[in-house]
Amino acid sequence: MAEATPGYELPLQLFAAFRTIIDAAHADLAEAGHPDVKPMHGFVFQAIGARGTTAVELGVRLGVSKQAAGKTIAGLEKQGYVERATDPGDARRKIVRLTAKGIDMLTVSARSFDRIQAQWAETVGPERLAALQADLRALAPGELFRLDVPGWFNGER
């Protein structure tokens, strides 16, 4: 029987595994021409979605202020990942949407996560990885992807 480890190690081990995955994905992104994206940008791109969003809606989805969302949008716009356009349904509103570069970043990251998962399956075995994923679903039920993580990390939610 395995010896129990102190309880504080579990969140650190989970975070270390998360960090390992994210660092590997960002190495792939840098190699594919996206060296300037940050881990938070994945949440931002998902919150923008395929149809786009406003700065106010983005802030709400991410759990950050409108000002923080606006600053993030401005930075990503400068890097060519997003663009602002007039909302076709309301000419008074500006919509933020992903550019082709932003969509490419998402495509590259999806391939990277698939590659990393395959490597983990090779390391621990596909059955153990599937069991780990099932266990994590049981321990952390509910939404698989919480967009409000950036705000949560900053204590805003």
Rank of each mutant, 00 (worst) to 15 (best):
H41W: 12
E127F: 01
K66E: 14
A16L: 15
R61G: 04
A100Q: 06
L14H: 14
L106E: 13
F45K: 15
R61T: 06
I103S: 10
G80W: 01
Q79G: 07
A69G: 04
D135S: 11
A50M: 13
A85S: 01
T123N: 05
V64I: 14
E122H: 02
L58F: 10
Q67V: 14
Q46D: 15
I48K: 10
I103P: 00
M40S: 15
A85D: 02
R93S: 06
W120C: 07
T54G: 03
A138Y: 15
S109T: 12
D36P: 03
I103A: 13
A110S: 11
S65M: 03
Q46V: 07
R128A: 09
G33N: 01
V44F: 11
A85K: 04
L129S: 04
Y81M: 13
V82G: 05
A74D: 05
L106N: 08
E77S: 09
P39T: 07
R111L: 09
L62H: 10
L136P: 10
A68R: 15
R97E: 08
L12C: 07
T72G: 06
L62P: 10
L14K: 14
Q67C: 04
S109F: 07
R93M: 03
F43C: 11
A4L: 12
I116A: 04
P39N: 07
D36L: 12
A55I: 09
A110P: 06
G59C: 04
A121T: 03
K94L: 01
F45D: 15
R111N: 04
E31N: 00
G7E: 15
V124A: 08
R61D: 05
I73C: 03
K78R: 11
E127N: 00
R111E: 03
A85T: 08
P88T: 05
Q79M: 10
V44D: 10
D36C: 08
G7P: 15
A17D: 11
A30Y: 00
A85E: 04
